[in-house]
Computed example of a mutant assay.
Amino acid sequence: MPRESRLLMLNAEAVAAVLQPNDVLEAVRRAFVLHSEAQGRVFPVIREKLSTGGVFGIKAGDVQAEGLLGFKAAGFWPSNRQLGGEPHQATVMLVDPATGRPVCIIDGNAITTARTGAAGAIGLQQLARADSRRLCVFGTGVQARVQVDFALRVLPQLDSLSYVSVDRQRDDGFERHVAGRLPVACAADADSAVARSDVVITATPGGGPLFAAAALKPGTHVNCVGADTRGKRELPDGVLERVRLVVDDRVQSRQIGESQWAPDTPCIEIGDLLTGKARLERTPDDVTVFDLTGLALQDLTVARLIHEKARDGGLGIEIPWPW
């Protein structure tokens, strides 16, 4: 006999109504802790190029003790810009681990953006020098902007921002986004901008090295966001060999992150820093790097948060899903 069940569908508007930065920070922190404690599993990542010019991927995982199971299907379709749409596309599905039936389908674009920004913020909290004041950002798109938002949330002492756009020209939209929060300037020379900075965030499509290795001065911290596929990179040769490297997941970093270019580089997982399994005593001259490849657990803990808030608030569209 068919069993009665219902499926909740949450579009971008519903997600935006319940997504709050502090909640996302806590959910992402929880994901890293679960990963460190081996309570949350991260399944092998699917990430493949398509004949259409896009890249399609699936990140899945579970937390058996908490009844959390699901995946995010996502990727990058650059031709969407010609249609007036967002190139990054993502959909998250939460699944009942007892039956395999879908529980909730969520527009994942805002989840991906916010959880990556929150992950970057946690990296800054753990690794950036406490006296960091000068921020340099590569990129001016959605992810670059959210990285700045979260950086200012956790490093309120930052007092200047330089940014490097793809064409080295001013981006009025980016400047309006940060206007009134700190002085901002477009950098004509990437190496000079890096050399003057305490914190560097690279949030680009990962098409190649963004600056010279010699530009990184002692004491700098770098958050690398863009390398999430085989062949992508943002750091130049010679950097990983002289830094203290922290990653969200050791295997993923070597497969699709910056570590694919120097796989023997010793590293620490960020979750192990949060749980105390590992320690990193930063000296003033250490150069530190946090490589963010994105964990399925981040998507799932944030999606669970959204699902619970939307359900309690009566948001979304619920449809019969009998079986």
Rank of each mutant, 00 (worst) to 15 (best):
R304E: 02
V24P: 06
L216M: 13
G207H: 09
A17L: 12
V146N: 13
A213N: 06
V24S: 01
E37N: 00
I46E: 03
L297A: 02
S51F: 11
D249M: 12
R41N: 10
A119F: 14
V287A: 13
L83S: 15
R254E: 05
A296W: 10
M9L: 09
A118G: 05
L155W: 09
A296R: 10
G226E: 11
G271V: 01
D312K: 14
G313C: 03
V184R: 03
G61A: 10
T220F: 01
S132I: 09
A60R: 05
S197I: 10
L124T: 02
V247S: 08
V239M: 01
R176F: 10
V28F: 13
R233A: 00
G67A: 07
V302A: 02
V222N: 13
I111M: 11
E258M: 10
G276W: 04
A262F: 14
L10I: 05
P183M: 07
R233N: 04
L69I: 12
V194C: 12
R153K: 12
V55P: 06
L25N: 07
R81D: 14
G57E: 12
D62N: 09
S51I: 03
R101L: 14
L240M: 06
N223G: 11
D264A: 11
L216R: 14
R6L: 01
A73I: 05
A73F: 10
T283P: 04
T112W: 14
Q125L: 13
E66F: 04
I105Y: 03
G180A: 00
G257A: 08
T283N: 06
L245C: 11
G314V: 03
C104D: 09
G294W: 14
T91F: 01
G314T: 10
A128L: 08
R145T: 09
G271I: 02
V247Y: 06
I317Q: 15
A12E: 15
R41E: 13
E66W: 02
R133G: 04
E26F: 04
S79R: 13
D228T: 11
R304L: 08
A31P: 05
Q20M: 12
R279G: 02
E48N: 03
D249T: 11
A303F: 00
R181A: 04
G123K: 09
I201E: 10
L216N: 11
E86P: 09
G141K: 13
R250G: 00
A214K: 09
H35K: 12
A212C: 12
E26Q: 08
L124P: 01
I268N: 00
V243N: 05
V246P: 05
R311P: 00
L10Y: 02
V225G: 02
K59T: 01
Q260L: 03
A114C: 08
A190V: 11
R3H: 13
I270Y: 04
A188F: 00
V15E: 06
G238T: 01
P320W: 00
L158K: 08
H88P: 10
R233G: 03
V63Y: 00
D272V: 05
D149H: 09
G316K: 03
L94A: 04
A303T: 08
V302C: 03
L300E: 02
A151F: 10
V42S: 05
R242M: 05
P209S: 13
L161Y: 01
T112R: 14
G141E: 02
A188K: 02
G84Y: 15
G40W: 03
L295K: 07
S165H: 11
V142W: 14
G208M: 05
L280N: 02
A310N: 01
G108E: 10
